[in-house]
Amino acid sequence: MRDSESKRNKFVLVLSMALASLLFTGPSSSAERTIQTPLVVGAGEDNSGELAGVVNRVSEDGRTVVIDDQLVELAAVVRFNGASWSRERLVKELDEGLKIYFEVDPEAKGRTLRIISIRSRD
Score class of each variant (00 low, 15 high):
Gly42Val: 06
Leu90His: 03
Arg63Ala: 06
Ala76Leu: 11
Ser48Val: 09
Arg87Glu: 05
Thr37His: 13
Leu51Arg: 12
Leu23Gln: 06
Phe80Trp: 02
Ser59Arg: 03
Ala52Glu: 08
Glu88Cys: 02
Ile35Gln: 07
Ser30Arg: 15
Gln70Pro: 01
Val55Gly: 08
Ser86Lys: 05
Ala83Cys: 09
Asn81Thr: 10
Leu94Phe: 09
Asn47Trp: 10
Val55Asn: 10
Gly53Asn: 09
Phe80Arg: 01
Val65Lys: 04
Ser59Gly: 05
Thr37Ile: 15
Val77Lys: 13
Asp46Pro: 11
Lys92Met: 07
Ala83Asn: 12
Val58Ser: 03
Val55Lys: 06
Val78Leu: 01
Ala20Tyr: 08
Ser21Lys: 02
Ser59Gln: 06
Val72Arg: 00
Leu90Thr: 02
Arg79Gln: 09
Thr25Met: 15
Val65Phe: 14
Glu50Ser: 11
Val66Cys: 09
Asp46Ser: 13
Arg33Trp: 06
Glu60Gln: 00
Ser84Thr: 06
Pro38Leu: 04
Val91Cys: 02
Trp85Ala: 01
Gly26Tyr: 10
Ile67Gln: 05
Arg89Tyr: 03
Arg87Gln: 09
Ile35Thr: 08
Val41Lys: 01
Ala31Asp: 14
Ser59Ile: 02
Thr34Gln: 08
Leu90Lys: 01
Ile35Arg: 05
Leu90Glu: 01
Thr34Leu: 10
Val78Glu: 00
Leu51Ser: 10
Ala31His: 15
Ala20Lys: 02
Val40Lys: 01
Ser84Gly: 03
Leu39Glu: 03
Arg33Ser: 06
Leu90Cys: 04
Glu73Thr: 12
Leu71Gln: 01
Ala20Ser: 13
Thr37Val: 15
Thr37Cys: 12
Ala52Phe: 08
Glu88Asp: 08
Leu39His: 01
Arg79Gly: 02
Ala75Ser: 15
Ala52Thr: 11
Leu90Met: 08
Ser21Asp: 06
Gln70Ser: 08
Glu88Ile: 03
Asn47Pro: 11
Asp46Ile: 09
Asn56Pro: 06
Gly49Met: 09
Pro27Gln: 15
Gly82Val: 06
Asp68Glu: 10
Ala43Tyr: 02
Lys92Trp: 07
Ala83Thr: 14
Arg63Asn: 11
Glu32Asn: 12
Glu93Gly: 00
Trp85Leu: 02
Trp85Ile: 00
Ala83Gln: 15
Gly42Lys: 05
Val40Asp: 00
Asp69Thr: 05
Ala83Ser: 15
Arg89Asp: 10
Ile67Gly: 04
Lys92Ala: 11
Leu71Glu: 06
Ala52Ile: 05
Gly62Thr: 00
Asp61Ile: 01
Gln36Tyr: 07
